[in-house]
Nucleic acid binder design. Structure first.
Lengths: 313, 313
DNA sequence: TATAAACATGAATTCTCTTCATAATTATTA
DNA sequence: TAATAATTATGAAGAGAATTCATGTTTATA
C-alpha cells in the first residue's frame, strides 16, 4: 500500500490549480516538494499524473482516478476526525446501561426520556437481565453504566450513589399482615412470595432478611414485570418485596398496603456504576444527576445521592 | 488533518488481535512502534482507543469509529492502487476518439465493435464534428486519438498512417459524366455538389481540386449522413465526392458510378493522431492496427499503413 | 506471591519528506 | 525569433517523524 493521505490532498489541490506551483502554494509546501512527491508517485505506479508543459494543467486519467479517490476519502476522514474530537469532548458517545435491579425499569424510562433530549448525540441503549456479570462487563467496556444496589469494590469501577430506598413488603389491603407496624421474618413462612426471576443472592429479601434467620416462604413464584407482581399481590396470590418508589402510587390510592421489613426497615442504596475513566464525562455525570432525581415524593426528590458516600472512586 | 493511512491499518490490525503485541506482529513493526503510534493518536484526539489491561483487548467507541473508517477507506485505496497499476500496464484506460472526416464513421463503427471485445476495460468514446481544433484537444489530453486525413506536424503528436484512400466523384448511372474515364474541375461548374456540413478547407474536393482552378459548382448542398448523400446522388439531386471505401458496395451493385478526380485521381492518406506519450500503449497500438485493416476489398486489406511513413513520431 | 504477559517509555537511529538553490524546459512577448 | 517569464525538474542538505532497542511498569495468572 503506497497511497498516503498526503498524495490525495496534493492531487486534489492540483486538480483545481492552474499549475503545480499554485497547488504547492495551496498546500503550504514548496513547488519542489510537490514535484518530488508527484515524481515519487509516478515512479511507483509507472504512470504520469498530469500532462507536462500544457498551459492549463491537465490531469491524465490516472490523475483523475486519484482525484476521485481523494474526493471519496478526504471528506470521510474529515468527518471521522470531527467525530473523534466530539467523542473526546464528551459531546458524542455511547451510554449502554444495564440494570441489575428489575424494579429500576419503572423510573429509568422516564429518566431516559429527558436524558435523550439533553444528549441527542449519545447512543443510549438499555439491557435488562444480563446472564453475565454486569460489573465485569462494565470493566471490559461492553457496557458503560450499571444500575445496582450491590456495590462490589472493583478495580477501575466507581459506584456513584443515586438515592436510598426501602424494600417493603407489599400485601393486599385485606391481608392479615396489612395492619401491622412491621413484618418479621417468621411472618413470611406461610406466605407465597412473588419475586423477579433472578438468583436469590440478588434479592435483598433473601440475602438480608429471610436467609439469615433461616426462614423459607411457603412458596416462591416469579414474575418478570413489576406491574404483573403488583397485580398478583392485589389479587391475593401472594406477597412481594419491592422498593418504595414502586409502591408510592399504588399505596396512596389504597389498592395495596406496604409495611417495613423488620422494626428498622430494610434500607438500601441504589448506585450507578461507571468506569473511573468515564466519571469526568459530562454526559455520564448528567445521567447520574438526572437519575438521582428520578424518584420523587410530592415533587420533592426522595433523597439525593450527594448525602451518601461514593464507593471506589 | 491528522489521520494517516498507517493509523487505519494499525487500528484494523488491533481490532482483530488479542493484544497490541499481536497486532504489531501482523503489521511487521515492533510492539514499541505501535505503542508510540497509538499514544500519539490518543494524545492528538485526547481520547483512548482501547481499554488498557483487559484480558481480551477491547476498543473504545473512539477506537471502533476508527476501525469503521478503516474498513471504509482501506478497500477503496486497495482498489484504486489496483486500477492505477492496470492503467500503467495498459490494461485499463481511456480512448476518446474524434473523427475529423465524416465518412470515417462508416468503417469506424465496425472497428470499434471488435475493439471493444479485445479491450473490455478501455473506456471508448467517439465524438464527431468537434467545434474546436481536434489536434490541440488531443495535445491537451481532452481526447486521445484523432482520425484525420490532414496531418499537421504538432509537438508531441504522432500521426500514424492507417490506409490510403481515393476521393472519387459519385454520380448516378445515367449521369452524363458516368461513362467518362475521369472528371475535370470544369466538369463540376454546372453541377450541384453535395458535401458534409463542414468548412470548405476541410474538404479535399475544394482544397485540392476546385479552388486551385477557381471553379465553383452551380450549387452546394449539405447532408450530415453518408447514406443520405448516396441517396441524394442516386435520386439525381446532385453529385458528391466521397472516399472509395464508402463507394465499394454501392458501385458494385450498380446503383451508383464513381470516377477519379483528374487523370491521376485525388489520393490521400488517413491517419490516426495520438500523443507521442501514448504510442507505446498496447491498447492504442491495437486500435491503430485494427483501424488500418478496417477497409477491405474482397476480404483483402485495401492497403496497409505500414507501407507509408509515420509523421511526427 | 511469584512469574509471565502485555503495555509504556526514553534515547538513538534510520528513514522519509521538505527545503534550498539551481537547472532545464516550455510558454509568452517584443 | 530571440528574449523573457513561467513552469517544472533535480541534487544535496536539512528537518522531522517513525521505528527500533533496551528497559521499566503495570496487569494477569499459576
Amino acid at each position: 500500500m503506497f497511497i498516503e493521505i498526503r498524495y490525495l490532498r496534493s492531487l486534489q489541490a492540483i486538480s483545481n490549480s492552474r499549475s503545480l506551483a499554485d497547488a504547492a502554494q495551496q498546500l503550504h509546501i514548496t513547488q519542489s516538494a510537490l514535484s518530488h512527491q508527484i515524481k515519487a508517485f509516478e515512479n511507483y505506479f509507472e504512470t504520469p499524473l498530469f500532462f507536462r508543459g500544457r498551459k492549463p494543467l491537465k490531469l491524465t486519467p490516472a490523475g483523475e482516478r486519484m482525484v476521485s479517490l481523494a474526493e471519496n476519502i478526504l471528506p470521510q476522514i474529515v468527518q471521522a476526525e470531527y467525530e473523534l474530537k466530539r467523542i473526546s469532548g464528551g459531546e458524542l458517545g455511547r451510554l449502554h446501561i444495564t440494570i441489575e435491579c428489575h424494579a429500576c425499569f419503572e423510573w429509568l424510562m422516564g429518566t431516559l426520556g429527558s436524558y435523550r433530549k439533553n444528549w441527542p448525540d449519545i447512543e443510549v441503549d438499555l439491557r435488562m437481565g444480563m446472564s453475565f456479570d454486569a460489573i465485569s462487563a462494565l470493566a471490559q467496556g461492553d457496557i458503560d453504566l450499571v444500575i445496582s444496589s450491590d456495590p462490589i469494590t472493583t478495580d477501575g469501577i466507581c459506584f456513584e450513589p443515586l438515592f436510598p430506598y426501602e424494600g417493603r413488603l407489599v400485601v393486599d389491603p385485606e391481608h392479615n399482615l396489612a395492619g401491622k407496624p412491621f413484618v418479621q421474618p417468621s411472618d413470611l413462612a406461610d406466605q407465597t412470595l412473588i419475586t423477579y426471576p433472578v438468583p436469590r443472592s440478588k434479592l435483598d429479601i433473601f440475602q438480608y432478611f429471610l436467609t439469615p434467620e433461616g426462614v423459607e416462604p411457603k412458596a416462591v413464584r416469579h414474575a418478570e414485570l413489576t406491574a404483573m407482581i403488583l397485580q398478583l399481590v392485589a389479587s391475593k396470590r401472594g406477597v412481594a418485596v419491592l422498593p418504595d418508589w414502586v409502591l408510592y402510587e399504588s399505596t396512596i390510592s389504597g389498592q395495596l398496603c406496604s409495611l417495613p421489613l423488620g422494626e428498622q426497615g430494610l434500607h438500601g442504596m441504589l448506585y450507578a456504576a461507571v468506569r473511573k475513566s468515564d466519571t469526568q464525562l459530562s454526559f455520564i455525570q448528567d445521567f447520574i444527576n438526572l437519575a438521582s432525581l428520578a424518584v420523587t415524593t410530592n415533587g420533592m426528590p426522595l433523597s439525593t445521592g450527594t448525602q451518601c458516600p461514593k464507593i471506589g472512586c
